[in-house]
């Protein structure tokens, strides 16, 4: 692995702010071409520590762990990172507050064990998105890979939410303990296709999955129940569909997406799936 020299940096405004705490209102432009992820992330952290809040990173090409090291920074929930290119795996892993917007596709393990903040991907994401996610929001405009949303959890009002505009693959929402995932199943289609993904929600013991379109019994794990969204849940779905359209500028799709009867709710039949497994 190569370690490159310092990251090239330009400021969109050039007024001098040295010495005093920066307001963070302007965009910091960074060029990630050939920069090792460790150096890139360190530079973002050190700028954030000096008060910068808005970053535009160009030529991103596989750099991992964007947003992971931004902990313990006052006002980190105002940090925005715009990524142009293809970020590497574990983007936003453990992330606690910032917002990352990707103009391109993301790789695997996006939002791994994420705690707080927002990720928006104007494209598709790979496998294991949102593993063990504990809070915050992830929006993916297009499709996601396998093993997405495994073991998401929630605690009181901290409820992680994933919204996927396209389709999902197998092992979706396994061991889910909390949180919600909304799958719009090709947001642009009037009639969502039945997506042939399997082993959905195996071991699920909390949380909810809402799929636009039908899900057949043979696609889901034994611990999963099929129902329609309740009134309260429909409000939530409406809110997140609205957010989804807003984040990606897809407002014209809202009307066709918000057809309640088309949504299938997948839920955990029990919060104690292993209760009857043992002899004492």
């Amino acid at each position: 692995m190569k370690t490159s020299s310092a990251v090239k940096k330009t400021r969109s405004t050039s007024s001098s702010r040295s010495g005093k705490q920066r307001s963070g209102a302007h965009w910091i432009k960074l060029d990630a071409q050939g920069v090792y992820y460790k150096d890139l992330n360190r530079q973002i952290r050190s700028l954030a520590l000096q008060g910068d809040r808005r970053f535009e990173i160009h030529n991103v090409f596989g750099q991992r762990y964007l947003g992971t090291n931004l902990w313990g920074i006052e006002g980190r929930d105002r940090i925005v990172i715009r990524v142009y290119g293809t970020p590497g795996s574990d983007m936003g892993a453990f992330m606690d507050g910032p917002r990352i917007e990707v103009f391109g596709n993301a790789q695997d393990a996006t939002g791994n064990t994420m705690n707080c903040g927002q990720i928006a991907i104007h494209g598709s994401a790979g496998d294991v998105l949102g593993y063990g996610m504990r809070g915050g929001e992830i929006y993916v405009r297009d499709n996601v890979g396998y093993r997405v949303g495994i073991h998401m959890k929630e605690y009181r009002d901290k409820i992680p939410t994933v919204v996927i505009g396209g389709t999902m693959q197998d092992f979706f929402g396994e061991y889910m303990a909390g949180g919600r995932i909304i799958v719009l199943n090709k947001f642009f289609a009037d009639n969502p296709p039945v997506r042939r993904s399997y082993f959905i929600g195996t071991g699920m013991h909390g949380g909810n999955i809402y799929v636009r379109g039908d899900v057949d019994l043979h696609q889901i794990g034994a611990e999963v129940g099929i129902a329609s969204p309740t009134d309260a849940e429909w409000k939530i779905i409406e809110k997140y569909v609205h957010n989804f359209c807003k984040v990606f500028g897809l407002e014209e799709n809202k009307a066709k997406l918000l057809k309640r009867h088309k949504f299938t709710r997948l839920y955990a039949k029990s919060s104690r799936p292993y209760g009857r497994l043992y002899a004492y």
């Binding site: 495994i150 073991h151 959890k153 929630e154 605690y155 396994e174 061991y175 303990a177 909390g178 071991g203 013991h205 909390g206 919060s271 104690r272 799936p273 292993y274 209760g275």
Partner: peptide, 10 residues
């Protein structure tokens, strides 16, 4: 995690 729910480590 919520009170009373199983804590499962896959």
């Amino acid at each position: 995690i919520p009170e009373g729910s199983d804590a499962i480590s896959p």
